[in-house]
């Protein structure tokens, strides 16, 4: 992979990313974090433990630390 400095003429320059798009990306990443951590802080204990169990194979398979 090369890191380049002088953009070629036809290469797109950095398109300004609107705030809402950055916010959407942040929300998407936060959702990934909550799903993969089986985070139950937003849920009842029952729902939390259900989420933990039902996402369990996915979490281990994607290499996220778990017990």
């Amino acid at each position: 992979m090369n890191i380049e400095s002088t953009p070629l003429a036809h290469r797109p320059t950095s398109s300004a990313v609107p705030l809402w798009a950055s916010a959407l990306a942040a929300v998407a990443l936060l959702a990934v974090f909550l799903i993969l951590q089986g985070n139950d802080s937003l849920l009842s204990a029952e729902m939390g433990s259900w989420l933990h169990e039902v996402t369990h194979d996915g979490r281990h398979a994607l290499g996220v630390p778990c017990d």
């Binding site: 950095s14 398109s15 990313v17 798009a21 950055s22 959407l24 990306a25 998407a28 990443l29 959702a31 990934v32 799903i35 993969l36 169990e53 039902v54 996402t55 369990h56 194979d57 996915g58 979490r59 398979a61 994607l62």
Partner: peptide, 24 residues
Amino acid sequence: GGTITVLVVGVLLGLAFAVIYARV
């Protein structure tokens, strides 16, 4: 559930990827 988890994570990462890609 594991299968759905991986698919959902894929779509969410794809959305974030599109935004980061546009930026960098």
